[in-house]
């Protein structure tokens, strides 16, 4: 089996999600940031500034290509043109890592631009595994699959999320991307125990960790409803859960995600430094 932990081209330190407004500072004073993640769909044009910036950054940083539009959990077939665009991007960039989401976003011809949930059933498992086989074969490299943030449950689900993800990895040979903020969000929304979730997670398959901010709301019954917004700093309870994750699973490349209301670069540098401080005392 492909060893995602030792073979990842990403350093086991902190990275950030790349935003074009931080280009100049990343070139001159990246501080503790020593790798970057891009959303694949933003680099599927033919040229211009996006590709020129990416080409320059790739000379300086290991890059992780993170897809948000493949719709791996979709009921219909995958979009072959989209897979071809992903392959084209990965072929010229040769990224240190390639990842996607356990979610769907496309149905028939409609792309809904959100990471929508799927039931955890045998049928969904078989379908997702087939889709991942197809992607890994077509793109020609192994991928990491990310655990989602979810807001509701499916009556038809027959297994828990960790069992579902573990089984997919077993069937396809893919690795996993553990988003600790998503664990916190989903566990709060679904009334699952986050420590239990982390303890049961197959850490030997984890090639990368995500950290991000979420918003707090409540449902019509007054129960907490956390929303994965990527629009603010990582909150303290998520840092605590992250520290537990590193103690349990060892050092991993760790990404700070901040996609909305993007702050000045020094704020992201601080968040990266905070992740580094948790990562460094741990023996690999």
């Amino acid at each position: 089996m492909y060893d995602f932990v030792s073979s990842s081209g990403l350093p086991k330190t902190a990275g950030i999600g790349y935003k074009p407004q931080h280009f100049a500072e990343l070139r001159t004073e990246p501080g503790p940031v020593n790798w970057l993640e891009i959303h694949a769909e933003n680099y599927m044009g033919d040229g211009g500034r996006p590709l020129a910036q990416l080409r320059a950054l790739a000379e300086q940083f290991p890059i992780s290509v993170h897809g948000v539009g493949l719709s791996i959990g979709g009921e219909g077939p995958l979009d072959k043109d989209h897979i071809a665009r992903l392959k084209h991007l990965c072929d010229w960039l040769n990224p240190a890592s390639f990842s996607e989401h356990l979610a769907w976003s496309t149905h028939d011809a409609h792309f809904l631009n959100d990471l929508l949930p799927l039931p955890y059933t045998e049928a969904a498992l078989a379908r997702v595994a087939d889709h991942i086989d197809e992607v890994q074969n077509a793109v020609g490299r192994p991928m990491l699959l990310e655990n989602p943030s979810t807001y509701l449950a499916f009556e038809e689900s027959t297994m828990d999320e960790v069992t579902f993800l573990t089984e997919i990895a077993k069937r396809t040979g893919c690795g996993l991307l553990l988003d600790v903020n998503n664990v916190f969000v989903s566990c709060t929304n679904q009334i699952w125990d986050p420590i239990d979730y982390i303890n049961k997670f197959p850490h030997h398959l984890v090639g990368e960790i995500h950290l991000g901010g979420h918003d707090e709301d409540e449902d019509e019954h007054g129960a907490p409803l956390l929303i994965d917004s990527h629009g603010r700093e990582v909150i303290d309870p998520v840092w605590v859960l992250y520290a537990h994750t590193i103690r349990t699973g060892g050092q991993k490349p760790t990404l700070i995600e901040w996609d909305n209301d993007v702050p000045e670069f020094p704020v992201l540098r601080e968040e990266a430094a905070r992740a580094d401080a948790i990562l460094t005392p741990v023996e690999a």
Partner: peptide
């Protein structure tokens, strides 16, 4: 139908999160 909150009640506002995101 078939979308629930953790207590087994209809998802309601929880489904609206996806509507709003999209």
């Amino acid at each position: 139908a078939g979308l629930k909150d953790p207590q087994g009640r209809p998802a309601g506002k929880r489904f609206d999160v996806y509507r709003n995101n999209v």
